[in-house]
Design a binder for these strands. Structure first.
Lengths: 213, 213, 213, 213
DNA sequence: CCATAAACGAGACGGTACGTCTTGTCTTTCT
DNA sequence: AGAAAGACAAGACGTACCGTCTCGTTTATGG
């Protein structure tokens, strides 16, 4: 079991033994990384700074992560998992009251709230920016951070199709982008203001189309 | 507008005299910056590298621009203007054949083509990433790079409203996001593949809505 | 002698039990240390490198030695003892044929040979250098490595005094330096070439003086 | 002249322009290096420490010197030149009163004094140790630091030969080692105490030989 | 003859320093 | 005065070792 990493490939490094990893250090690094990104911004957050703030040797970071972005991604994922654990036993499900519009509006309002939380905003902006330029990281972000949420949208949209509230020929993977992408772009690229009213409007437009009926 | 830097206030700097600026250096810097971003990527593009490649002193860059992103933005804007000048006398107008769906599909296909051009992709990704994290730069990007295109969409949508092809209560500034944002997000965040088929679908879904009629 | 470390005082360390010490590890460490000093030089010889090459944990080195120089000194002493054991039952005595000049010349020629042996040269240079800067180690080196040889010189010079070949008012502890120090300095500090002719000349000059008689 | 370095060989570095070198920084580096060696010892003197103490960037050290030892050597040479400049117009000549023994004894007593001066001792020990292990540096040390003094001895011994106080067949380059090497070894390797009496004895023994006349 | 305690190999840890790279400023020399 | 050139102070990078500190795993009695 200890050989699983050395087994397949890279002859370069001896692969650290993760069973001996210091949990305390890992948590301290997560906290330091998130705090620094919030306080001084991502570009001024340095690995040295994280190490110093976490009371950890630099090597301990380089041993387990490959880059600043990698640290931050795990820290952010961990933050998410923590929130979930605190949230309770049925943490993350898309509401289904039978009213698709209302359900999606509710979820989007929660998303808007999250986007305004500085503890969430700073690291997720940083990661998104990194992912724009670094495709590999970008794909990891999508898979680990976004996909779970997207799957919930897909599930809800499928249910709506079964209930006859969404046309059956619609691809839910594309349909969900009408709710998410405009909001994401406004937020990421500062192309426009974000509000409950705005997201409500998105849902209405998307469901009923731009063309007159 | 060129005086914003020399502005009355800041006593620190003597404000360079832009009339004596070397046009040759400026062009060389633009070309070096764009070439480096394409060749080695944005993070490995350094001011020193640009200066060296342009055969220019570092101070010449620092004198006229405030950051690497600033250089790249102007270089990219310049690139755009160049393309326009080459394109001819009626360069940039949204087609209006009377068929909104067809017109928008055509424009989006052109956008897809552009996204696949490496000369465009590298710098615009870099700028977008920078703008995600740096709000000021982000707003500048939106204003200088994106807004002109968005305005064309708004114009076309208004025309469509006048022609009764789009409901009059629709806000065109929001409606255009259904065409642009999903594509932008797939491209920027690598959340999905990009194709003509995809953008065509976007237009159809957006115009007629997800709900059955 | 083995108890000097466990000595009553320092409460810090539990003092390792030297009776349970692994002989195999000790020898492996000696060999690794000497080999590395020869192969990569003293400054690039690291404790980690010695441990790795010896197939030994770092702590096994830190348990028994206080520094890299300490390891090397013991390894070198051990090397000397090994040579002696191999040399036979009457290993180390200063020749006394009655001809002081011839005897000393012979011993110095052997010293010259030794100085040219790379297996001897690398570690002894390293130790000498360390001893120059670290007085405590220097004194240990003198006591353990040099003094035995010096005593043989002193013995031979005393015999020469008894035989009337050396003036009785001469201090043998100083006299021996005329034979040893010039050679040592040429070797250590690269101040001049070393040859049998040179050491022969030293003996002649030293015995008969520089001034005309 | 500025091209002498780039001229012959190594294609690696662009060779800094020594005409633009900061004299202030150089002096500050010399002072910091010497002070640190005296205060904390050579092994604990680090390039970072020198840079910090001198108020200088690390690169300024790496630009002009190749190693810690190199810095220290130049600093020490500079110290020597400074002393000479302060000493006056006829700074460095071997005394020649006609009495060789007295002259050499006087010079050796001055050497003993110098060896006891901590400002001299720390750096010269460090350099000597470095030179023992690093032949190239060792040869530079000999050539730049020791040779001038040795030449004075040679000159004085030649004069003594002319005056009939030293046998004409004696090689002065070897003879001088009888005065210098024993003292150097005692000092460097801590093989024995150093005193005026000791150096006086060396001179007497060397001039008249160990053997009875 | 096994229990137990020490030494052992391995290597993660908090640190320090390395030598390199880049930043943004400053200075020199040329045009 | 702008520009090319590049030295400078500053400081982060990623690497290498330091010496300490666990971890299981031998190993070697001594109860």
């Amino acid at each position: 079991m200890a050989a699983q990493k050395s087994a397949q490939s890279a002859p370069g490094k001896p692969a650290p033994d993760s069973t001996r990893r210091s949990e305390k250090s890992r948590r301290a690094i997560y906290e330091a990384a998130l705090a620094l990104v919030v306080e001084v911004g991502y570009p001024k957050t340095t690995i040295e700074g994280i190490a110093a703030r976490a009371g950890v040797g630099k090597q301990t970071i380089y041993r387990w992560w490959s880059s600043k972005a990698d640290v931050l991604m795990e820290a952010f994922l961990d933050l998410g998992e923590q929130s979930l654990r605190e949230a309770g036993p049925v943490p993350y499900a898309f509401p289904d009251t039978g009213d698709l519009a209302a359900d999606v509006k509710g979820v989007l309002r929660a998303t808007v709230d999250q986007m305004r939380d500085p503890r969430f905003e700073a690291p997720s902006r940083a990661l998104a920016a990194e992912g724009v330029v670094n495709e590999q990281l970008g794909r990891e972000l999508v898979a680990k951070l976004m996909q779970p949420s997207l799957d919930l949208y897909i599930g809800r949209l499928r249910a709506a199709q079964d209930a006859g509230q969404v046309r059956p020929d619609i691809d839910p993977r594309i349909a969900l982008e009408f709710f998410i992408s405009p909001l994401a772009q406004r937020w990421l690229q500062h192309t426009g203001p974000i509000s409950y009213e705005y997201t409500d409007t998105l849902v209405d437009y998307a469901l009923h189309g731009l063309a007159p009926r």
